[in-house]
């Protein structure tokens, strides 16, 4: 437990180690319970005495889950997260660069609109957004979730912060060498803001994957649901089939956990940079 720099075993250290261990168990246990619960039989789940480790593991819950169109739900979720991520990275890096490095008429106005929008909670626009999406015949399509996610201004704000670090001399040099705007952006700006794009990509992916409220309002057909919505519906219909619901939770959690663990570094960097700069 004791891996601190000075490494002396004081009572404070022992107590803090114990509290850390308890907190860790407390936060990791629900995940353990999802995964073990998903392979337990109904008989092993519906007992007042919990079974700490699955003794008769079974795939039955997963079979049942995928007979609901869970595969399709998973595809929908991946589609939403990937497309929202790509579009956000493209639009935000372009807009962020211009807002950081160019001077043009209306810039202050646009930037204050972005700041104001960022200060407001996303959920309050859902009621008008639903009407708008219905009018555009986008309701119950995946685009109804993707487009507002891409329009959310946080990404532009983050990319503006990153673009400000680019030295003006580099842009001058590119201009003198006769590089056009597009070439300057692709060959000089993009490589320099790569860490920012990495952070934004994983942030958008996770947000879009988990944006339950938006999905709940915009998607209603069984074939256009996301995996989160699917589990929520299963829970509403079959409240006590915990094995099935845990299988759903596991299927929803595994891909996003994998993405997080792979790109963890970008993510923590992004939080620290984007946030602390405010």
């Amino acid at each position: 437990m004791n891996s601190t720099v000075t490494g002396k075993l004081t009572p404070y250290r022992i107590i803090s180690g114990i509290i850390l261990a308890i907190l860790t168990v407390f936060l990791v246990f629900p995940l353990y319970w999802i995964f073990t619960g998903s392979v337990k039989t109904a008989a092993d789940i519906n007992t007042p005495t919990p079974q700490w480790f699955p003794t008769n593991p079974t795939w039955a819950n997963y079979e049942k889950l995928f007979s609901n169109p869970a595969g399709l739900w998973l595809f929908n979720t991946i589609f939403i997260a990937v497309v929202a991520m790509l579009l956000t990275c493209i639009t935000a890096s372009m807009a962020g660069y211009v807002l950081a490095k160019k001077r043009f008429y209306g810039k202050a106005f646009i930037f204050s609109a972005i700041i104001c929008a960022m200060a407001l909670p996303k959920q309050v626009i859902l009621i008008p957004l639903l009407k708008e999406m219905s009018a555009l015949h986008l309701h119950d399509t995946l685009w109804a979730v993707i487009l507002p996610t891409v329009g959310w201004p946080f990404g532009v704000f983050l990319m503006k912060q990153f673009s400000e670090g680019i030295p003006n001399e580099m842009l001058e040099a590119a201009r003198i060498d006769g590089a056009g705007e597009v070439r300057t952006f692709v060959q000089i700006i993009l490589p320099m803001v790569k860490p920012g794009i990495g952070a934004l990509a994983i942030f958008t992916f996770i947000t879009a994957w988990n944006d339950y409220f938006m999905q709940l309002i915009m998607l209603t057909k069984n074939t256009s649901l996301t995996i989160s919505l699917g589990i929520a519906n299963l829970q509403a219909e079959m409240a006590t089939d915990f094995g099935l619901i845990m299988a759903g939770a596991a299927v929803a959690a595994i891909p996003i956990l994998a993405v997080f663990l792979m790109f963890q570094k970008y993510f923590t960097q992004g939080i620290a940079m984007g946030a602390v700069k405010g």
């Binding site: 579009l87 493209i90 639009t91 935000a92 372009m94 807009a95 660069y97 211009v98 807002l99 160019k102 646009i110 609109a113 972005i114 929008a117 626009i125 008008p128 957004l129 708008e132 487009l147 507002p148 891409v150 329009g151 959310w152 201004p153 532009v156 705007e181 952006f185």
Partner: peptide, 16 residues
């Protein structure tokens, strides 16, 4: 450069 962002921002955030 701003256009792609502005379209979605105005359409699906500001107007709502």
């Amino acid at each position: 450069f701003l256009l792609p962002f502005l379209v979605v921002f105005v359409g699906f955030v500001l107007i709502p």
